[in-house]
Design a protein around this nucleic acid. Structure first.
Lengths: 213, 213, 213, 213
DNA sequence: TCGTAAACGAGACGGTACGTCCTGTCTTAAC
DNA sequence: GTTAAGACAGGACGTACCGTCTCGTTTACGA
């Protein structure tokens, strides 16, 4: 899932026939890997392009040729790492799918490089439109649609009430995971199950219309 | 809620008799104000102590005398701004108190300087133990206790089921708010009400024991 | 007469093939000129590299890339300014050559930038081996050899006594000039002539072996 | 030989009855000693009043109360150290007195603290009128008068020619010593004797009026 | 097969900010 | 009213990176 290059690409796709030496995939990949490692170690504000270049064995200018800014580089990294953890398959079991909806990001955050990377980028996403808007337009939107599909299937199956509010389902299921990522607390299967349980059952004492007893 | 000074303070509290010219409250206050403004404008990584000093009309060394690092300064700011928005009074109405539990941080984030400031500091909180641990030990802990009290009162009143899981209540009620802060979406009273409604009622189709009809 | 660069230069002189963008001669020259002016205005201890950089339109780091320290920069300046004023040509007239030996440094000190610059650096030369040793090894040594040649020619011509002490000739001829530079007094041709006259004729009443008169 | 205090002293000595705590001689002395040591170690530009204050066990403000500037402090030091080495007694032997004229400053420079201190201050004397003018008006003037007296006695005794140029005698006798102080070379009795020998006898081949033989 | 053109690595460029140090002034409490 | 202590505003230090700009070299395509 590539991000728009720094300079060219506006080019015609058909005529093609680009001149000069082509961009080096090796360099592209090496930069992304180096950036990922350094981002995890130092955070976004500690991400020095000079260090990325050194670790990747690349000239600084090459980074600017491919991305144009630290933010664009970070975004490509983010999208690349987030992508695989979004889909929730149709398992036929609503509770199971809801659990997957919580466990997918939870696992991505705790077991893959996506965790440290997004930790490092949370503030940028929250503040910088260049990064935030594009992250929202891609990753967050994909996640929301996936959750909406899970809810729809749940309603269809008669497991969720028809009026279930899909508009806040992502917040209710995934919000708690990100809350703990930032503010601390266990991020494990037990936590995910408690979130799902509350999501399904609520906490209120049921209104018994059997009050004619 | 003061943060430990950079250097002295080891001193005896009772006998006192501090030597030399005392620290300037005016400078302390001016630095905090300037830092708050610049943090909101530029983010944490764009927070230049040189600019803070200039805007506060203060020497750079004075900042280091009072705090010793950007992070400590940011933490004092955060604690100072977060403090007022945590308590939830006993209103007698559980739903109302739950709504306040959601609306308090929501309003702090959208209507006060706390919003921009914590946006700027999310990554630091999530990554840097110096800042994160102390933020968790103060602000987050205070919030969790407050939520636990609200849940306890709800159970006592018979509005919440006795087995209600207080350990994830903060995540369920406040997590969605922070999720939207970072990943976008309306942050208004309607949102808060939907969160509370889901928290109380869940989404599952109620199990009707009238199925022997 | 160049001074050793801050970092590279270890390089092969023949094969060459230097990597990266080459050092800028324009910057080198601009820094030397700015340093000269500021040294003359403010003295060595008042020579702020930040001001040199600003006046030369150059980044501070560029100065450190080329010289590594204020002292090395000052030395190159000194050597560059001192060089032209050392040689004394063979005029055939010993008194004339001795006068040139005094007038050369006198004119350099009073009529060129070398005067203010060395005034500013006297203490460094006298105290700091980094600067002093290298100044002695280049400029002072060159001056001493030149004076020794003048004395040798004078002896050869029969104008100076054969046992004339070349080892203190520089001190006797040039010492008085530097003395006045520091401690005050006219520095003009008349002064130079009086120094040469005393050097040649001494002050003692001649021992007349004609005492049989 | 005290230098004018920074602030008070304008006061009348008779009426007296100065108010408040009197100045501390201990502090004055301790500051001078600390300044001397640090000047010898670090040079004038490395002389930090903060370090002087610390080493003397004194508040920084006290230094400013007594001297008002680094230069005034340095001057008092210089005058105090130079004073003892100027007088040349009447020994009856002109060559001996001339040797003392050379050896006095030579010994002061090599065997006492005056050497390192004046090394450190040469540039200031040569450049800064505040220091230079007052040094010239006191120490240099005293030296010149002393040399003039030695020359006068030499003429009177018939050892020096009546037309001997007293106006450059100091330069010819003491200049070589300072030259070596800055630019290197042995500073010992042998050097002094060679300087005196040249001063008395010159270097020119004597004009023999026996050419009518 | 040979230009031509662009990307490559390297590293210097003019800058900005860092965190430290020191300046000369000020504000305390103690004497 | 001076003292030691130490905070104050200011400013330079030498270092580290920024994003841009040459360099000489490498790699592809079309003439």
């Amino acid at each position: 899932m590539s991000v728009i290059p720094a300079t060219p690409d506006a080019a015609d796709p058909g005529s093609a026939a680009r001149k000069g030496r082509p961009r080096s995939d090796r360099a592209h990949r090496a930069i992304l890997d180096a950036a990922r490692d350094l981002l995890m170690e130092e955070g976004f504000s500690g991400l020095r392009l000079e260090h990325v270049a050194a670790r990747a064995g690349v000239g600084k200018a090459t980074i600017y040729r491919h991305w144009g800014s630290r933010e664009e580089l970070a975004l490509e990294l983010l999208v690349e790492l987030a992508g695989p953890h979004i889909p929730v398959g149709d398992s036929g079991d609503t509770r199971e799918e809801l659990l997957a909806t919580v466990m997918n990001p939870l696992r991505a955050l705790t077991e893959t490089a996506f965790g440290p990377v997004i930790r490092a980028l949370l503030s940028q996403i929250a503040m910088d439109p260049r990064l935030g808007d594009r992250f929202r337009a891609t990753v967050v939107m994909a996640r929301r649609s996936e959750v909406a599909r899970v809810v729809a299937r749940g309603i269809e199956r008669g497991d969720l009430r028809p009026e279930t509010d899909a508009g806040v389902a992502t917040e209710l299921l995934v919000g708690p995971v990100y809350f703990r990522l930032v503010f601390g607390g266990e991020l494990d299967r037990d936590f995910a199950e408690r979130v799902v349980a509350n999501y399904l059952d609520g906490t209120a004492v049921p209104v018994r219309d059997v009050d004619w007893f």
